Simulated assay, not measured.
Amino acid sequence: MTEQVLITGGAGFIGSHLARRFARDGHRVTVLDTLAPQVHGDDPATTSPLLRDVSEVATVIEGSVTSTDDLRGALKDATIVIHLAAETGTGQSMYEIDRYTTTNVGGTSKLLDLLANEEHSVRRIVIASSRSIYGEGAYRTEDGKVVYPGHRADADMASGDFDVHEPGEGTLTLIPTDESALLHPSSVYGITKQMQESLIMTVAPTIGIESTSVRYQNVYGPGQSLKNPYTGILSIFSTLIRQGKEINIFEDGEESRDFVYIDDVVEATYLAATHPDAVGEVFNVGSGVGTTVNEVVDALFAGLGREVPTRISGNYRLGDIRHNIADTTRMTRLLGFTPAVSFRDGVAAFAQWVLTEPVEQDSYQRSLDEMAKRNLLK
């Protein structure tokens, strides 16, 4: 069956790859995207490889999910909606609160309001959620209990204690976080992603639309923005390495993330949109493996064939988590999907792609200065 697929935010990193996946199977794809300068540059037609790429396989509509008229036009004949559109960036969300809330929560509300009150052909919505809704995620205590610790205290981190603690408990052991875990985000971004997911998963079934949520871990790979300072440490660090600049490693460098390669994310999202057993489900999309920041730096040095000075500074950002590793067994059990690309292989492919790209102007320090000015970076 040929679907008419609408991907909101579809000219971004994940959306452009996903559009190709749907087009490859013969589906028709429409993309709605604001083409924001932070991602696409000041003149997207000439400065955005992502836009050029997605334009080959999809109809691109420049517009916003915060506009009812833009949404109405993009939804015409759509049978599947992949809702990727969102402002992203944990740190930036802590001081651009209205923009994040307006786009992420307001845009999702407008989408559902249209579907609830006007005629349409949509039968399934997939919402792109985030590991950020878990906050610190799951840990096991010394006596075997599973706990979900609260946010780390500023005073602890200021003294160099970056570990996660639970009152009344001793040493905690990190364990993979499954989809039944407590949701307690530690940033405005995480709060808005939780609200997006809750809106879709609550409202869509009541208006006769199937719904599925995919909670992405740290997505990376060829094609991600190298100019957006909020896109992730792989892009940030690779740019610094190519510029020969020092890398400031926050905390002690032992904070870890679950990095998941773009091809795995695309396949997982495709299944969430098309598989009958995905209806009504929430899925973690990750590798299930934690990688520390120190390990990321070493992998990029190897992949790019160059090293620069590093400094473990003890700096930290309020709202950051220490660790989070996804339990991916639900997607394997219900959809038969297991991530295929290891971090070693994925970062090697990412690094080889980076070497073919122009060296971008460094805007990372400006983003740090913005946080420091607001006392969010210590």
Rank of each mutant, 00 (worst) to 15 (best):
E251I: 11
R242W: 09
E251H: 13
N284C: 10
A272H: 13
T274E: 04
Y270Q: 09
N248Y: 13
V282W: 06
R257P: 02
V265I: 03
Y270V: 01
A278I: 05
S256P: 04
F259V: 02
S238C: 11
F237E: 04
I241N: 01
D277V: 02
V289E: 13
Y270S: 05
A273V: 06
S287V: 08
A272K: 14
I247H: 06
G290F: 04
E281G: 05
H275K: 10
V266L: 04
V266E: 09
A268G: 10
I249A: 04
E251C: 14
Y261S: 01
Y270A: 04
G286Y: 08
E281P: 06
T269G: 03
K245I: 00
E251N: 14
A268C: 03
V289A: 08
H275C: 03
A268N: 07
K245F: 00
H275P: 02
D263R: 14
D258I: 02
V266N: 08
D252F: 05
K245E: 03
G290N: 13
E281S: 10
L271E: 02
H275V: 03
V279I: 15
I247G: 00
G244S: 07
G244P: 01
V289L: 09
G253Q: 09
V285T: 06
E281T: 07
G253V: 00
T274P: 12
E255V: 03
R242K: 12
S235T: 12
D252G: 05
A273N: 10
G288E: 05
T274M: 14
P276L: 04
H275F: 10
G280A: 05
V289T: 15
D252A: 03
E254W: 14
V285L: 08
V289H: 14
V285M: 06
L240F: 13
L240V: 00
E255Q: 15
Q243R: 15
I236P: 10
E254P: 05
G253H: 09
S256W: 13
T269W: 12
I241D: 00
N248R: 15
F250D: 03
Q243A: 04
T269M: 08
P276I: 00
T239I: 14
V285N: 10
I249Q: 01
G253Y: 07
L271A: 02
E251M: 15
D264K: 11
I262T: 02
F283Y: 15
E254S: 13
V265W: 08
S238H: 10
N284H: 11
Y261T: 01
G290I: 01
